[in-house]
Protein backbone atom coordinates (compact mmCIF):
# COMPACT_ATOMS: atom_id res chain seq x y z
CA UNK A 1 0.00 0.00 0.00
CA UNK A 2 1.15 3.51 -0.86
CA UNK A 3 -0.01 6.47 1.21
CA UNK A 4 -0.10 10.13 0.22
CA UNK A 5 -0.41 12.72 2.99
CA UNK A 6 -1.43 16.26 1.99
CA UNK A 7 0.54 18.90 3.87
CA UNK A 8 -0.38 22.53 4.35
CA UNK A 9 2.16 25.04 5.64
CA UNK A 10 0.46 27.31 8.19
CA UNK A 11 1.33 29.97 10.77
CA UNK A 12 1.99 28.63 14.27
CA UNK A 13 -1.32 28.50 16.21
CA UNK A 14 -0.20 31.19 18.66
CA UNK A 15 0.63 33.71 15.88
CA UNK A 16 -0.73 37.21 16.35
CA UNK A 17 -2.76 37.78 13.19
CA UNK A 18 -2.10 41.07 11.35
CA UNK A 19 -2.73 42.30 7.82
CA UNK A 20 -0.88 44.63 5.47
CA UNK A 21 -1.67 46.77 2.43
CA UNK A 22 -5.03 48.16 3.52
CA UNK A 23 -6.06 44.81 5.05
CA UNK A 24 -5.70 43.05 1.71
CA UNK A 25 -2.99 40.52 2.65
CA UNK A 26 -1.88 38.48 5.65
CA UNK A 27 1.25 39.94 7.23
CA UNK A 28 3.79 37.11 7.24
CA UNK A 29 6.59 39.09 8.91
CA UNK A 30 7.98 37.32 11.95
CA UNK A 31 5.61 34.37 11.53
CA UNK A 32 6.76 30.87 12.55
CA UNK A 33 5.50 28.25 10.10
CA UNK A 34 4.40 24.75 11.03
CA UNK A 35 2.78 21.66 9.52
CA UNK A 36 -0.99 22.18 9.70
CA UNK A 37 -1.95 20.39 12.97
CA UNK A 38 -4.46 18.00 11.33
CA UNK A 39 -2.04 17.15 8.54
CA UNK A 40 0.57 16.44 11.19
CA UNK A 41 -1.81 13.99 12.90
CA UNK A 42 -2.55 12.40 9.51
CA UNK A 43 1.17 11.93 8.93
CA UNK A 44 1.59 10.48 12.41
CA UNK A 45 -1.09 7.85 11.70
CA UNK A 46 0.51 7.04 8.33
CA UNK A 47 3.82 6.42 10.11
CA UNK A 48 2.13 4.16 12.67
CA UNK A 49 0.53 2.15 9.85
CA UNK A 50 3.88 1.80 8.11
CA UNK A 51 5.57 0.62 11.29
CA UNK A 52 2.85 -2.00 11.75
CA UNK A 53 3.67 -3.36 8.27
CA UNK A 54 1.74 -3.36 5.00
CA UNK A 55 2.72 0.13 3.87
CA UNK A 56 5.54 0.45 1.35
CA UNK A 57 5.88 4.16 1.13
CA UNK A 58 4.60 7.45 2.52
CA UNK A 59 4.74 10.45 0.22
CA UNK A 60 3.81 13.97 1.26
CA UNK A 61 2.49 16.62 -1.12
CA UNK A 62 2.17 20.36 -0.80
CA UNK A 63 1.20 23.29 -2.99
CA UNK A 64 3.45 26.19 -2.14
CA UNK A 65 6.50 28.28 -2.96
CA UNK A 66 9.98 27.30 -1.81
CA UNK A 67 9.18 29.05 1.48
CA UNK A 68 7.30 25.88 2.49
CA UNK A 69 10.35 23.64 2.19
CA UNK A 70 11.46 23.83 5.85
CA UNK A 71 8.00 22.51 6.80
CA UNK A 72 8.28 19.70 4.23
CA UNK A 73 11.77 18.80 5.52
CA UNK A 74 10.30 18.55 9.01
CA UNK A 75 7.69 16.08 7.71
CA UNK A 76 10.49 14.09 6.07
CA UNK A 77 12.46 14.23 9.32
CA UNK A 78 9.69 12.51 11.28
CA UNK A 79 9.59 9.72 8.71
CA UNK A 80 7.86 10.46 5.38
CA UNK A 81 9.82 8.82 2.55
CA UNK A 82 9.62 11.50 -0.10
CA UNK A 83 7.96 14.82 -0.85
CA UNK A 84 6.32 16.56 -3.79
CA UNK A 85 6.02 20.32 -3.87
CA UNK A 86 3.90 21.91 -6.58
CA UNK A 87 5.53 25.23 -7.12
CA UNK A 88 2.69 27.74 -6.80
CA UNK A 89 1.20 30.13 -4.31
CA UNK A 90 -2.00 28.51 -3.00
CA UNK A 91 -5.00 30.61 -4.13
CA UNK A 92 -8.12 28.71 -3.07
CA UNK A 93 -9.21 25.15 -2.32
CA UNK A 94 -10.17 24.47 -5.94
CA UNK A 95 -6.80 25.71 -7.17
CA UNK A 96 -4.91 23.60 -4.61
CA UNK A 97 -6.96 20.45 -5.26
CA UNK A 98 -6.50 20.86 -9.02
CA UNK A 99 -2.74 21.06 -8.56
CA UNK A 100 -2.68 18.02 -6.30
CA UNK A 101 -4.81 16.02 -8.76
CA UNK A 102 -1.79 15.98 -11.10
CA UNK A 103 0.36 14.04 -8.64
CA UNK A 104 -2.16 12.07 -6.51
CA UNK A 105 -3.16 9.34 -8.96
CA UNK A 106 -1.20 6.29 -7.88
CA UNK A 107 -1.93 5.98 -4.18
CA UNK A 108 -4.16 3.53 -2.33
CA UNK A 109 -4.83 5.89 0.53
CA UNK A 110 -4.74 9.68 0.58
CA UNK A 111 -4.95 11.42 3.95
CA UNK A 112 -6.06 15.05 4.19
CA UNK A 113 -6.52 17.07 7.38
CA UNK A 114 -10.08 18.29 7.94
CA UNK A 115 -9.02 21.90 7.38
CA UNK A 116 -6.01 24.16 7.45
CA UNK A 117 -5.71 26.36 10.51
CA UNK A 118 -5.20 29.51 8.39
CA UNK A 119 -8.06 29.72 5.88
CA UNK A 120 -10.19 26.97 7.50
CA UNK A 121 -11.45 25.90 4.09
CA UNK A 122 -12.16 22.21 4.70
CA UNK A 123 -12.41 21.79 0.94
CA UNK A 124 -9.22 20.39 -0.57
CA UNK A 125 -9.67 16.73 0.45
CA UNK A 126 -13.23 16.29 -0.83
CA UNK A 127 -12.50 18.24 -4.00
CA UNK A 128 -9.44 16.15 -4.76
CA UNK A 129 -11.42 12.92 -4.30
CA UNK A 130 -14.08 14.19 -6.71
CA UNK A 131 -11.43 15.20 -9.26
CA UNK A 132 -9.78 11.77 -9.05
CA UNK A 133 -13.23 10.15 -8.99
CA UNK A 134 -12.37 8.05 -5.94
CA UNK A 135 -14.24 7.33 -2.71
CA UNK A 136 -13.95 9.66 0.23
CA UNK A 137 -14.92 9.57 3.86
CA UNK A 138 -14.97 12.72 5.96
CA UNK A 139 -14.80 13.28 9.74
CA UNK A 140 -12.45 10.30 10.02
CA UNK A 141 -11.15 9.67 13.53
CA UNK A 142 -9.43 6.32 12.90
CA UNK A 143 -7.81 4.37 10.06
CA UNK A 144 -6.46 0.84 10.37
CA UNK A 145 -5.30 -1.94 8.12
CA UNK A 146 -6.61 -5.42 8.79
CA UNK A 147 -5.27 -8.13 6.46
CA UNK A 148 -4.70 -5.51 3.80
CA UNK A 149 -8.25 -4.15 4.16
CA UNK A 150 -8.93 -0.60 5.26
CA UNK A 151 -11.14 -0.03 8.29
CA UNK A 152 -12.21 3.52 8.87
CA UNK A 153 -13.78 5.14 11.93
CA UNK A 154 -15.76 8.32 11.45
CA UNK A 155 -17.63 10.72 13.72
CA UNK A 156 -21.34 11.17 13.14
CA UNK A 157 -23.92 13.22 15.02
CA UNK A 158 -23.84 12.02 18.61
CA UNK A 159 -21.38 9.18 18.11
CA UNK A 160 -19.19 7.28 15.69
CA UNK A 161 -19.21 4.47 13.13
CA UNK A 162 -16.78 1.95 11.77
CA UNK A 163 -16.84 1.48 8.02
CA UNK A 164 -15.28 -0.59 5.30
CA UNK A 165 -14.52 1.36 2.14
CA UNK A 166 -12.75 0.17 -1.01
CA UNK A 167 -9.43 1.63 -2.11
CA UNK A 168 -8.30 3.96 -3.50
CA UNK A 169 -9.70 6.06 -0.68
CA UNK A 170 -9.32 9.64 0.38
CA UNK A 171 -9.84 10.03 4.13
CA UNK A 172 -10.46 13.51 5.53
CA UNK A 173 -9.15 13.12 9.06
CA UNK A 174 -9.71 14.94 12.32
CA UNK A 175 -9.23 14.51 16.05
CA UNK A 176 -8.64 10.97 17.20
CA UNK A 177 -6.74 9.82 14.11
CA UNK A 178 -3.49 9.88 16.14
CA UNK A 179 -2.70 11.14 19.59
CA UNK A 180 0.56 13.05 19.74
CA UNK A 181 2.56 14.27 16.75
CA UNK A 182 6.17 13.15 16.55
CA UNK A 183 9.12 15.34 17.27
CA UNK A 184 11.97 14.96 14.76
CA UNK A 185 15.12 13.36 16.19
CA UNK A 186 18.61 14.47 15.15
CA UNK A 187 19.07 11.32 13.06
CA UNK A 188 15.78 11.98 11.24
CA UNK A 189 16.75 15.58 10.56
CA UNK A 190 20.09 14.43 9.06
CA UNK A 191 18.36 11.78 6.92
CA UNK A 192 15.68 14.22 5.74
CA UNK A 193 18.33 16.31 4.00
CA UNK A 194 18.97 13.57 1.47
CA UNK A 195 15.38 12.40 0.97
CA UNK A 196 13.81 13.28 -2.41
CA UNK A 197 11.84 16.54 -2.54
CA UNK A 198 10.51 16.78 -6.07
CA UNK A 199 9.42 20.17 -7.35
CA UNK A 200 6.64 20.03 -9.95
CA UNK A 201 5.52 22.98 -12.11
CA UNK A 202 1.91 24.07 -11.53
CA UNK A 203 -0.98 23.33 -13.88
CA UNK A 204 -2.67 26.30 -15.50
CA UNK A 205 -5.82 26.59 -13.36
CA UNK A 206 -7.95 29.58 -12.42
CA UNK A 207 -9.12 29.95 -8.83
CA UNK A 208 -12.90 30.13 -8.47
CA UNK A 209 -12.91 32.46 -5.50
CA UNK A 210 -10.96 35.54 -4.56
CA UNK A 211 -10.08 36.89 -1.12
CA UNK A 212 -10.95 40.58 -1.29
CA UNK A 213 -9.88 41.67 2.18
CA UNK A 214 -9.72 40.99 5.90
CA UNK A 215 -10.95 42.45 9.17
CA UNK A 216 -10.04 41.85 12.77
CA UNK A 217 -12.84 41.40 15.29
CA UNK A 218 -13.88 44.31 17.48
CA UNK A 219 -12.16 44.18 20.84
CA UNK A 220 -14.38 42.44 23.34
CA UNK A 221 -15.98 44.37 26.21
CA UNK A 222 -14.51 43.64 29.65
CA UNK A 223 -15.83 40.60 31.50
CA UNK A 224 -18.48 41.53 34.07
CA UNK A 225 -17.45 39.97 37.37
CA UNK A 226 -19.80 38.52 39.95
CA UNK A 227 -18.79 37.77 43.53
CA UNK A 228 -18.20 34.12 44.46
CA UNK A 229 -20.52 34.33 47.47
CA UNK A 230 -23.30 35.89 45.41
CA UNK A 231 -23.25 33.46 42.48
CA UNK A 232 -27.03 33.64 42.18
CA UNK A 233 -26.59 37.14 40.80
CA UNK A 234 -25.06 35.54 37.70
CA UNK A 235 -28.28 33.71 36.92
CA UNK A 236 -30.23 36.96 37.32
CA UNK A 237 -27.89 38.72 34.86
CA UNK A 238 -28.14 35.90 32.31
CA UNK A 239 -31.92 35.95 32.67
CA UNK A 240 -32.62 39.69 32.74
CA UNK A 241 -29.65 41.36 31.06
CA UNK A 242 -28.32 38.90 28.49
CA UNK A 243 -31.74 37.22 28.15
CA UNK A 244 -30.23 33.83 27.36
CA UNK A 245 -31.91 31.94 30.19
Amino acid sequence: MKILVLISNVPDTTTKIRFTGDNKAFDTSGVQWIINPWDELALTRALELKEAGGVEKITIANVGTNATEPTLRKALAVGADDAIRIDAEAKDAFFVASQLAQVAKDYDLILAGIESSDYNGAGVGGMLAAMLDIHSVSAVSGVSLENGELKVQRDIDGGNQSLSVPTPLLAVVQKGIAKDPRIPAMRGIMMARSKPLNVVPPADVEARTEFLGYELPEPKAACKMVDEDNAKELIRLLHEEAKVL
Binding site: P11, I17, S117, R208, E210, F211, Y214, L216, P217
Partner: peptide, 14 residues
Amino acid sequence: KVFTQKAFARIQIK
Protein backbone atom coordinates in the same frame (compact mmCIF):
# COMPACT_ATOMS: atom_id res chain seq x y z
CA LYS B 1 -13.95 33.55 9.82
CA VAL B 2 -10.34 32.72 9.08
CA PHE B 3 -7.20 32.00 11.11
CA THR B 4 -9.28 29.82 13.41
CA GLN B 5 -11.69 32.50 14.56
CA LYS B 6 -9.06 35.23 14.81
CA ALA B 7 -10.11 37.30 11.77
CA PHE B 8 -12.79 37.71 9.10
CA ALA B 9 -12.33 37.54 5.33
CA ARG B 10 -14.50 38.81 2.48
CA ILE B 11 -14.48 36.38 -0.42
CA GLN B 12 -15.95 36.68 -3.90
CA ILE B 13 -17.27 33.60 -5.69
CA LYS B 14 -16.77 34.03 -9.41
